[in-house]
Design a binder for these strands. Sequence first.
DNA 1: ACCTGAACACCGTTCAAGT
DNA 2: ACCTGAACACCGTTCAAGT
Lengths: 202, 202
Amino acid sequence: VRAAIETLDEGGADALTFRALAARLSTGPGAIYHHVTNKNDLLSSAVDDLMRAVLAPSAPEGTHPDIRAVMLAAFDAITAHPWLGTQLVTAPWQPAVLRLLDRVGTELSRLGVPAGAQFDAASVLVHHLLGVASQYDAGRTLAGMGHDRPGFLDAARLEMEQPDGDDEHPFMARIAQQLAAHDDREQFGAGVDIILAGVATL
Amino acid sequence: VRAAIETLDEGGADALTFRALAARLSTGPGAIYHHVTNKNDLLSSAVDDLMRAVLAPSAPEGTHPDIRAVMLAAFDAITAHPWLGTQLVTAPWQPAVLRLLDRVGTELSRLGVPAGAQFDAASVLVHHLLGVASQYDAGRTLAGMGHDRPGFLDAARLEMEQPDGDDEHPFMARIAQQLAAHDDREQFGAGVDIILAGVATL
DNA sequence: ACCTGAACACCGTTCAAGT
DNA sequence: ACCTGAACACCGTTCAAGT
């Protein structure tokens, strides 16, 4: 599993092959099946490993883990391992996601959110994370985007323009500019704050 | 593209193969490359077709499209074509997603949301949609879940229990029960409402 | 211009044969 | 019990040859 994580970190999702992994471990592809039942099993084990660290009790004894801190820890894990986001999104019912959901939901419960709304609220928070996560991985591999997201968005906006030239898509133009001066982590946190503000009204 | 959508609807993402598609169109696999550059191109064309219908101006002349209505229209498209959700999540920078983001953002702008927060707010809304969307597709194919999500969640909860038996994961137990009586569409709308309530505080 | 379908370079997975 | 690595059943994609 550790070798798989290294392969994924170095070459992305496409680099993880039973043949490549076998070569890295100086063995044959078949040998891997003695330790793992599946490629899916291997991937979810890799995800589990990383998410376990995210959810490890970092708060000092007696203190309660802060939702915002947990969300940001997950965000940081995903930026460090971009393939992790895609993997979480592709299999949202896997144990790692359920553990995260439980942690968030439990914390919401402690904050006094009504029982009937805890699941709705926790889901929105986790979805926010998964959404940002998937963008992050896709952004690395997308042809033509590179690190120039503002330019990419602006080009996309121009493609969206109707032939009649009536609609100008001012919103897209504005966010293309904003993206240039934006810190991803800050923006993620801003989204969390919006959701928590909404939760607070319940 | 229409044949691809039919294949995807009938057999899910794995069923769309150039060989299967060629058979359905009574031709060879190579012929498809004269109309489409790639499998990715084919998939995003299929996504575009469906999302174009979602974003088509449905509101009567002069009226403004309601954010909630747009979000629910997208939700309905995804439940009708579960593979659509996975596809949207896998490539969040594709034109279809950007058009949705623009629609939501433009509407937020009209509602008086401060310019600096429009992108944050629109992103959270779209992420909520994509998150629910990916769950929907994964839920169909996940082994052991079937249509018994409460039972599945409860089993997952039991697996999560630590050997020391101290932690009871009461949140998971509660949502496992809630899921039995829950309407997915309603829950999706509840999430949208939470986000909009948070946006309103800005 | 468009189609045909064999061929190429890969996959994940299996399995007889070894140690 | 674990490894080995050829073999199997697939992929997406290409390309000479046809119409």
